[in-house]
Design a protein around this nucleic acid. Structure first.
Lengths: 242, 242
DNA sequence: AATGGCAAGATTGCATACGATTTGCCCATT
DNA sequence: AATGGGCAAATCGTATGCAATCTTGCCATT
């Protein structure tokens, strides 16, 4: 159960490139590992292990884990440690309910501010997304989930509200976890075309249509999930079946 | 500039009542102090000072400050320390834009789940709010801001989405800061009646009306702000006035 | 008198050490 | 053989120490 191979240490930080917060770099690295499933839900992230992996003390490893706990990607249990989050179906529903609420607003804001350069950027992103769609294997699948999330994050970035952007950051990351856990089919084979449709509407300046498409898109993602209580194992639930 | 008097140490934690995370208790205490202005924006919160105030080491004080930084209530500068946030007008606008987006959704969810007991609780809360409205002095003013925020948080709680609840927690807290900084008149003398109106609509099950009232309410709060760059003090702005 | 540099003080960043708590294993007892 | 107690290993929670960095006041120089 060595997590060392799962984490792309050099992926986010070429080396000691940033003299700034190292805990932030560790957070980024772990975040990426979590959202594209190199670290499975439930995996234990011990402070010492993370610390030695990134060659820092427990202090800074702990700070990174605290940040991840704050954004809901890991859960910490006192005196037991930190574990990659294992979102419950209820949590999953709430995540998507939040997205259904926020993303139309983001789309509406984005349509006011999007530039032709942004459009070009988006097309490039969608191309990459489509490329992964046609590849096989878990690596391509992971990359696809990641790219799909990036589309939504780019949208939030264009919308220009840093607070909503941070909320979306969290929601997209947690969505990735949920899809990894409860996803039924191949992620969102329809997702790519839906992204394209949203972008097309944005390009035409049709915010209302883009927002509607976005809601449908989110609905489709959630509909692809199998949110049964199969993973109920909560014991608390098991003990009070009535 | 001793902050010790500003913090109600016993307010949130009677003593060592919680054997659990002390940093969480410190965060709560500082949070309360910030959102009702006992700690003014810009105030420095040094690790050692906070630590000795709560009789803990810098380690746990630091953890509390990190959490506050994460929710935007304090800003940390590397090698300089943590300071109570001084939201810019732009930040303020984004905070209220976010609330305009999220709160109608919360209201819509709340109308589906609100119980008669909740209504009673809300009435009690509104009574207390009204009481502060008729009192004079900064203490009553602070209590009024707090109580006003609590109304929105109760709503989020009733809505039953813990993620949105946490977002609102952050947004309400930051709003308090913004109102403290840019508030023009007496907070929201109209706010109380508007809260009542929202609740009335909720009680009648008229979610659409409640949502509309909520948007107006938020608009009114924001309209009461003086979001000029008077506090621009950024120097960077002052130097490039064109 | 104003400016520039320097050194002392203060504060954070980080690592490490020690105590506390939990977990799992082993063995004794029934 | 199953159960219960207790010990040992592992891990977390917290305090503290040291180095790095920033601030500030002082002094020399112009």
């Amino acid at each position: 159960m060595n997590i060392s191979e799962k984490i792309n240490l050099t992926g986010t930080s070429p080396e000691e490139r940033s003299p700034e917060d190292r805990s932030m770099a560790i957070r980024e690295s772990l975040r990426n590992a979590i959202i594209d499933r190199r670290l499975a839900p439930g995996t234990k992230l011990s402070e010492s292990e993370v610390g030695s992996l990134f060659d820092v003390s427990r202090t800074v490893a702990r700070a990174a884990l605290q940040m991840l706990a704050f954004e809901g990607l890991v859960k910490t249990e006192r005196n037991r440690g930190a574990f990659v989050s294992n979102p419950s179906p209820e949590e999953a529903r709430q995540i998507f309910a939040s997205r259904r609420l926020i993303e139309p607003g983001i789309v509406a804001a984005a349509v006011e501010r999007i530039t032709p350069e942004d459009i070009v950027q988006f097309r490039r992103q969608l191309d990459e997304e489509g490329r992964y769609l046609n590849e096989r294997g878990p690596a391509a699948r992971r990359a696809e989930i990641k790219a799909s999330g990036d589309f939504h994050l780019m949208l939030a970035s264009v919308a220009g509200n840093v607070i909503l952007q941070r909320f979306m950051d969290e929601l997209v990351a947690r969505s990735s976890l949920v899809i990894a856990l409860y996803g039924r089919s191949g992620v969102s084979s329809c997702g790519h075309s839906e992204h394209t449709a949203v972008l097309d509407a944005l390009e035409k300046g049709d915010g209302a249509r883009a927002a509607k498409l976005m809601i449908h898109h989110i609905d489709h993602i959630e509909a692809d999930l199998d949110l049964q209580v199969k993973q109920g194992l909560g014991l608390k639930d098991a003990l009070s079946p009535i």
